[in-house]
Amino acid sequence: MAGSGTAHMRNNDEVVLEVRDLVVEFKIGRGLVVNAVSKVSFDVCRGETLAIVGESGCGKTTLGKAVLQLPPPKSGDVVFEGTNLTKLPKEQLRSARTAMQMVFQDPISSLDPRMTVRALVEEPLWIWERGTEEERGAKVRELLNNVGLDPDLVLNRRSYEFSGGQCQRISIARSLALEPRMLICDEPVSALDVSIQAQILNLLQDMKDRYGLTMIFISHDLAVVKAVSNRIMVMYLGKVCEVGSPDAIYSKPAHHYTSALINSVPIPDPTRKRGAVPLQGEPPSPVAPPSGCRFRTRCPAATELCAAEEPQLREVNPGQYVACHHPRT
């Protein structure tokens, strides 16, 4: 698994974001390089929610940030609404990027503790000098109302006075201020209590409908992803394993890693039997990834072929693509 390839790309008119062969590397000194994202391609259609899942360190957050050019990827293309962001000069990128906004994982760290909620939500409008003082104030109130916060109660308070869930609502309000067409949510609920997670997921769904957003939803939690996405992309160690609809991924995962991930989701039913044994061990270091298929060191079906040759994504069922030499059937 963990392969490259572009078989899953849909070259139709509905594609809003197209990412091709994206590579992100971090130098960590002494000539060592972390291969955080290696030749990943994917596309997102208008109004769709693409979920990117994988365990910690698989490069999904880096991928999300690289789409926004934060920092710019080492190579590859990010084409958003026909504009290749990787080739844009700095100033044009600055304004092109406003059509995509990000919601971060840690709701508390993503808000400046010294600023009032009013200033936080108004900030994007302030940067772009949108509207007059009053118009901006009205917009802030509207946004706060939309995310379920009472403007009169919260406007003059600071982020540390709020709970994680409320902070995430403030972040979402801020990310919507510039009326983006795409929202990249980086683990937006993983820092929250389970009871709050559902509220925030519902809120994101509401906002998606209200503002006609296209979403990339990054998560390690398959249970969360199933509830929100139209399409799922499974990543492992900087590579794509499998792409498909939630139904396909859940009912008949073709990749051994996907299957292991699904089996690791806790089922709140003690009488139900578990499927295959969850994965053993840790993922290999992204500094020196295994040859061929990057998953082969933990894969139950690995053969010599997997070490020699990197699998490419190919269609196993209609709409379901897998990068594996020996897919599950």
Binding site: K65, L68, L70, R94, S95, R97, T98, M100, Q101, M102, F104, Q105, D106, S109, S110, L111, D112, E123, P124, I127, W128, S171, R174, L178
Partner: peptide, 10 residues
Amino acid sequence: EFVVAARSMG
């Protein structure tokens, strides 16, 4: 993250 957020907002 609020610094990254500010940058992403332009």
